[in-house]
Nucleic acid binder design. Structure first.
Lengths: 243, 243
DNA sequence: GGTTATATACTTGTATACAAGTATACTTCA
DNA sequence: TGAAGTATACTTGTATACAAGTATATAACC
């Protein structure tokens, strides 16, 4: 039963969050980073003790994580599912599904405001790169895609995104943190890629959009090894809580 | 503050369900049927009193309904969103999206077992029609589509379905109950339609699948008026809990 | 030893209590 | 009458208590 002094999830993003969300976000990061291994059985009581909160927020957190498919609520205990290669590919599928759907809608819309908004976000990303702020960069990256999705005003597509977003966010965070340290040159490519995406929207060019979308996926999801590296880094000196 | 003696949701489906799910299912039915109008503000305390449970399961229920997009959790009170025409169309979109995705996967799979399973379900549906059991029919109808979706073993597509399913279930239940009373002849068409769907899977015929899928949607979702009729019927003599 | 019973230490789900915050209505004062 | 402050009756989020059920291990018995 080890106390985690350092939290993986950016604390500043939780300024106004309830304890339940806090626990969910931190647990999610630990699961996706691999710090908590697949197959681990989580106990409400143990988690409550670990996070020094009561069972109520913990229960809430577990419900959230279960709806995101990264844990499975069983009769006794919540077993960690995590993200293996298969799940990563599945997320890829769903993102492709919804973002292409969104794009089809965008083709028949006035995208002036959207493009302006996206350009702004892209500038923010560049600043984040300059100051080597991986967390801020990740935030803007997620926001970029969310902005596109929100623009079509489709509550049920947004529902899908809302279920996917936290996992995406964690993936991107972990991936970017590693790369800011080790593959700094990647970011020029990522920025170019997002410029391409904006361009595709501006020109309403389907194939260009698909292309940049695929490249974007590869940038985040193709690098599962990065995540494993990240896990190794992070868990260095940090004991797991296996009994 | 009226006591609802009759529940809209089939009680036998809740035999082993926790109080939270019970409340969620019943509330969902009341919202989708229109018994609880859009814009209504739900109070945890009031709901707890109405259902004679504590706030814990009510909170759980509200979280569930919020994730399904039929209520919106705000600072104070949960406001009912409900299903207007726009939402119905959006659900239509998402079902089309995921079921066509599933079909593409099916094309490269051994569908022998699936077809057998679906045929069985279809027979069950016929029996339900014969005995005029609207609830059983609805159950099998939902199961039919869920079986198709599960067959490709895609946890994130299943995640989308899991979020959509309860709403679909309610829609189908309400729609079928009305039609068992008033449009009995519809059911021969619905059965034919499902046979078409099975045929499409068997032959791996995309266009046939899309066609039957569209017809199936129209059967459930095109009839919003039915729902309003159903609401009128059901709320006859039942007071709303305004104030 | 092997099998069955029982005790114990868990688990979940629900009820209840409480703290902190927010809208509403009322009172007070100019 | 109008504005500002205060009291009150709500709200949410969290902690805690308890009942019912389920695994695990110990003990008893054949």
């Amino acid at each position: 039963m080890t106390e985690h002094k350092e939290f993986l999830y950016p604390e500043k993003w939780l300024s106004k969050a309830a304890a339940g969300d806090r626990v969910a976000c931190e647990l999610r990061m630990r699961i996706i980073s691999g710090l908590i291994e697949s197959g681990t059985i989580l106990s409400e009581n143990k988690l409550a003790a670990d996070f020094t909160v009561s069972r109520s927020p913990v229960r809430e957190a577990l419900k959230i994580l279960a709806s995101e498919n990264i844990i499975r609520l069983e009769r006794m205990g919540a077993v960690v599912v995590g993200l293996a290669e298969k799940e990563i590919e599945e997320i890829y599928d769903v993102r492709l599904l919804i973002e292409t759907f969104v794009f089809e809608r965008l083709v028949n819309m006035d995208i002036h405001e959207l493009v302006k908004e996206l350009s702004k976000i892209l500038e923010m990303m560049k600043v984040a790169i300059k100051f080597q702020d991986a967390d801020e960069f990740s935030f803007q990256d997620v926001l970029f895609h969310e902005t596109i999705i929100r623009s079509i005003n489709h509550s049920y597509i947004l529902m899908i995104w809302n279920n996917l977003k936290p996992v995406m966010e964690s993936l991107i965070l972990l991936s970017m943190r590693v790369r800011f340290k080790e593959k700094y040159e990647d970011f020029t490519r990522i920025v170019e890629n997002h410029e391409l995406y904006i361009e595709a929207i501006k020109k309403k060019d389907r194939t260009l959009m698909i292309k940049s979308l695929h490249q974007n996926f590869d940038d985040v999801q193709g690098k599962v090894e990065d995540l494993w590296m990240s896990q190794q880094m992070l868990s260095k000196g940090v004991e797991l809580e296996n009994e």
